[in-house]
Design a binder for these strands. Structure first.
Lengths: 218, 218
DNA sequence: GGAGTAAGTGTGACGTTGACACGAACTCCC
DNA sequence: GGGAGTTCGTGTCAACGTCACACTTACTCC
């Protein structure tokens, strides 16, 4: 068969300690043995691209049910020293408490990335850029949160992604005005201070928001 | 070599008669003989993705020096009846006067597309959606215009892409306030009416605009 | 009951958006 | 040479969104 190999790599983000983290694997074999890399693998012959990303995340990180979207296809003929492999990169988002199986996978803060194998650094950089753009006009940010969350948690998520601090009152005012959160009437008791009210994101209320040109720009 | 074939397809837009048009080729051979399709072809073994798109546009449409960006990679295992081919779709923009070589290529208005081969209709739809989004926060719109243009031409370009009419005074006020156009001090004399002043887009003035959060939303 | 901590809340200044109508400049024709 | 026809080019005002900014509330722990 003529053609070249096609792989799928995923930049998997989560929030940890109010910082954005990505999942990295430690490579055991050459090339780049001992380096860190994104979870990825070759596309199977009759497999959808996104299905491949899902399969690989399950195999390599024991994860199920993650939010996934295609990012970009990297095709530099020299990106893999073993021969040509083009890779379809994806972005994935998971909530903070996502467990990891033991093994060679670890969450790494984005501001302290080690050297990455192949062109994976470029892929991560591009993924962050895209995530920053997208979080402002789409509700993907909630994929980084648990189902029930406080407003402070939402703000921390936005701050972690955007890399800047936001004004508390303005953030809450804007977010609530979009009418996409449903207050649960309950509160989370945590520590020695006033409990925070819990909310849930209502996917179904999103459509009208986008149609009106409203958006998560804070 | 294990792997599947990889092709590159391009949705090439231009403006014609104040409408958005795409370049279509007529297929001569099966599958889909007689149908229209996007210009595309197989990736060469040591070729960059974007270089392949450039080569194909040159070969199939005689075009050089077009604006190109990657759109999305379509990987449905059944998208080509001959066997698996994943395709890296691109968007290209050219100014209105772009000549076409004779042959099987033709400009087709977007609102009157014929049936397209493979999944090319889906690709065109997605390309339009992306172009509409992108024109509002990046100056790609100017790639659809000649180097020197009038404000009315810019407005027509935005109206054609966005598919809605815009207010003339508000459009001009906003566009000029971004300070990315350089007035040429000359005018284009055309027909029996007041001549229109000519402008040029200044790439170098764009950075500051984006940094300030300004944008081409009209 | 006092200290400590995060949650929750409103106002006013400023800038942006959006609706809206008419004179200016040119050509062509008579 | 003047009138008809056509597109170019321009300003104001009201409504709305954004941004800066500080204190009280609710709870726990000692």
């Amino acid at each position: 068969m003529t053609g070249c190999r096609v792989s799928v790599d995923t930049v998997l983000f989560r929030l940890g300690l109010a910082r954005l983290q990505v999942l990295l694997l430690r490579r055991l074999r050459p090339p780049f043995a001992g380096w860190s890399s994104l979870p990825g693998g070759l596309l199977h012959p009759r497999e959808e691209l996104q299905a491949a990303a899902v399969r690989i995340l399950r195999q390599r990180a024991g994860l199920d049910d993650v939010y996934l979207e295609q990012l970009f296809t990297f095709g530099d003929p020299a990106r893999d020293p073993r021969g040509r492999v083009i890779t379809v990169a994806h972005i994935a988002l998971v909530p903070p408490a996502t467990p990891l199986p033991a093994g060679d996978a670890s969450w790494t803060p984005l501001h302290a990335l080690p050297r990455l194998a192949f062109d994976h650094r470029r892929i991560v950089d591009y993924a962050l850029q895209r995530l920053r753009g997208k979080i402002e006009y789409s509700p993907v940010g909630f994929r980084l949160l648990p189902e029930e969350f406080t407003l402070t948690e939402v703000q921390e998520a936005y701050e972690a992604v955007l890399g800047r601090v936001l004004d508390k009152r303005n953030f809450r005012k804007k977010l609530l005005s979009l009418k996409v959160l449903r207050p649960l009437g309950r509160a989370r008791k945590v520590g020695a201070h006033r409990p925070a009210r819990l909310y849930r994101f209502e996917e179904s209320r999103w459509e009208g928001v986008r149609d009106k040109g409203n958006v998560f720009v804070f």
